[in-house]
Every structure is written in structure tokens, then in C-alpha cells.
Design a protein around this nucleic acid. Structure first.
Lengths: 67, 67
DNA sequence: TGTGAATAAGAATTCAAG
DNA sequence: CTTGAATTCTTATTCACA
């Protein structure tokens, strides 16, 4: 279900420095939410996630309030 | 000069809803800062700008504090 | 160090279709 | 309304060079 997957997305980016949607897709698969990059892109849009430059100079996804 | 151009970038995204680096490149050109997309990408990285989902559902660049 | 040209890499959207 | 496959679009990076 979409809602569960999006909740998982939020948990994942909290725990892990996710650099790409590909990576996020794989981490979702591990948790049992197999989907494609297109879906990840849509989830990110709906969740209004941002790709921010982290402290070590690498891009990673984050919630707006944490950016 | 890089600094002037980056200052212009900040002004531009303040005034205009810039959706892509291509668009930003063109707006910079108008102000006399001709450069390529590669340079715009680097400026955005250095300025730590974010591509956020605006109120009307369109992506646009913004500063971290405004996101 | 800063940049452009070209390319690779990444992400958004289109186009069915369930 | 949600998704995947394919595509298009966008952006980051590489590589050469001033």
C-alpha cells in the first residue's frame, strides 16, 4: 500500500543517508516494498522531500524541516 | 566573477520561480552573466540551494531557510 | 581555481494499463 | 487512483584547458 511505503521512505531517510532514488528503491525492496524509480520519484514529490547537500558534501534526501 | 554571479543567482530565485538550471542560465545571461549549465549546477551546489515543490505543485529553486 | 563541452547519472513525466 | 516501463528532461561530473 502506498501509505505504508511512504512511511517506510521517511524512516529510511531518517536512518540512512540516501543519495539516489535508485538506492532508496533498493532499501524499500529490502523492507518488502518492491517498486520502481518512477514510484519513488512520485513518493518523494508527495512527501515533499528535498535533496540537500549534507555535511560531507554529498547529496542526500531529507525532509523539509530538517533541511 | 563568480561571486557576482552567485549573488545574482540568489537575487533571481528570490524574484522569479526558477524551475530549471537552463532557465536560471538564461536569466543570468540577461543580467550579463553568460555561463553554462555546468556552472549553474556548481553555483547551486556551493550556495546549497534546494529544488522544492512550490505551492502550485511546481518545482523551483530556493534557499534552505526558505524551504 | 574556474569554466565549457560533452557525457554520465539521476529524476520527472508520459503513456498505457491494472 | 496507483503503478511500471520507457522516455524525456534535468542535473552532476569528467576531462581538458585557460
Amino acid at each position: 500500500m502506498k501509505n505504508d511505503r511512504q512511511t517506510a521512505v521517511l524512516q529510511i531517510i531518517e536512518e540512512t543517508a540516501v543519495e539516489t532514488q535508485e538506492q532508496l528503491m533498493q532499501l524499500l525492496a529490502v523492507r518488502g516494498f518492491a517498486c520502481t524509480q518512477a514510484t519513488v520519484s512520485r513518493d518523494i514529490k508527495e512527501l515533499r522531500l528535498l535533496k540537500v547537500l549534507s555535511a560531507n558534501g554529498v547529496y542526500k534526501y531529507a525532509t523539509a524541516d530538517k533541511a
